[in-house]
Nucleic acid binder design. Structure first.
Lengths: 240, 240
DNA sequence: AACGGACCAATCATCCTACAACTTTCAGGA
DNA sequence: TCCTGAAAGTTGTAGGATGATTGGTCCGTT
């Protein structure tokens, strides 16, 4: 068969190879890449070509370069920075509503497909939440709370949903962290979590979605209460 | 105030400027960019720097270069190609479930916030659907059907949701197109659309979400029925 | 006049060299 | 020991040269 043309440019080929190395964990997050000279030899391309490939991945959020120091892997997925860039142009409420969409769907699917392992993981998170709450360990509480929600989404068995949810949560993390430190959520949130777990255990999708929505609304109200100052701050940060 | 360092490299600055030009529609989709020599002069950077910036945007899906011809604007948003790249690694069912998540949430929000204009638009789409269905105009029917769903999401008043929904729909478009051409959906789909519109008109969020889910499930079943052959084809396309 | 082919100019793709700016390392002196 | 500063390593930017592809022009043939 005759190949009409090299459909892909050299730069794209190199970028693709590097993306695969990252995806396949051969270059894990935090890894420092070999210097440009070595990569040139390894890929058999000139410095310009290699640099254009690297720059493409830097812009996509996969790599990070520091002059004089080197290049390192920043993230294993492109979605993160793309979503981040888009979310910065939106209000926090809009971002929260998208996260709510994902979480409700995830809860519903989790109720349909959850395994015994999923249930055990969720239970463990609730226990951890309760323990942290009783000891007033805010940091541990937040971690366990986030882990609970993540496990719900994981139980949905949809990796794409997991990815999107994780990134949306990451974007909102700074705010969530501040808000979750407040007192009341330590109580009400827990009860809803229990109800949600029960709905998932009993495989009642509608009910699970409802409790997920309930939990999100509690969080949404809290965040919106503290929105004024945080929102200003965000805008300032975005401004420059 | 003292500027510590040039936080951003020249390449990033140029890329950012070009992104703004695209975002602000000064460079609209399809526009041919000036040749590299002119851009070099305009931005005041060397050829390498400019090319690295261009390459970053090409990789992000915003630009497209053709040797010997020139560079043109391919898309106004980065999200599209990032989502596309991620979705290609997932099954169609997973993608459908994400789209379902967005659509249900959109229907719910639309029921809360819809304006009279939104209702009029939705009504017009349904009329158009009915007309096309009566005349057996499949192409027109599909267009109107997609437009109806898009208007539902638009009525949610959440631009981020709209963007994500649009891109997910775009990814699924090829399949949707094939499936919608089937007979039965011309009937059942219409009824559900009417019910959904009524729920939105009466501002009943839960009901609206339910009908949106119902509509998605009809589509989902149809697609999954025709999945075997389409799925194989997809894998072949993805393969190379 | 219409068609086809060779030529030519514009444009991007790749490569090369050189130097600047920044970081890290480490040897040498206080 | 601690500090300093020189040197090596690494990425950032610049400029030039050549190859490959495209699109159009012009000319000759039918």
């Amino acid at each position: 068969m005759i190949r009409k043309t090299h459909r892909k440019s050299l730069v794209e080929q190199v970028a693709e190879q590097m993306e695969q190395l990252i995806e396949q964990q051969q270059w894990t997050v935090g890894t420092k890449l070999p210097p440009e000279m070595e990569l040139m030899a390894e890929f058999g391309v000139s410095r310009n070509t290699l640099r254009e490939a690297i720059r493409a991945l830097v812009h996509a959020g996969l790599l990070e370069t520091k002059q004089g120091s080197g290049t390192l892997v920043r993230s294993a997925s492109t979605l993160g920075s793309a979503l981040e860039r888009r979310a910065k142009k939106s209000t926090m409420l809009e971002t929260l509503e998208v996260r709510e969409a994902l979480e409700k769907q995830a809860a519903q699917l989790a109720a349909e497909r959850r395994t015994e392992t999923d249930l055990a993981n969720l239970e463990a998170c609730i226990q951890s939440c309760r323990h942290a709450s009783a000891h007033g360990d805010v940091e541990q509480f937040i971690a366990s709370d986030l882990q609970f929600h993540k496990n719900v989404v994981l139980a949905s068995g949809n990796p794409l949903l997991v990815d999107l949810y994780e990134h949306m949560t990451g974007i909102l993390y700074a705010f969530i962290q501040d808000v979750l430190a407040m007192e009341p959520c330590l109580q009400t949130g827990q009860e809803v979590h229990l109800e949600l777990l029960e709905a998932i255990r009993k495989q009642e999708p509608e009910s699970a979605a409802w409790y997920a929505a309930r939990d999100m609304n509690i969080l949404k109200e809290m965040i919106l209460d503290a929105r004024e100052e945080s929102y200003e701050e965000t805008n300032r940060n975005i401004g420059r």
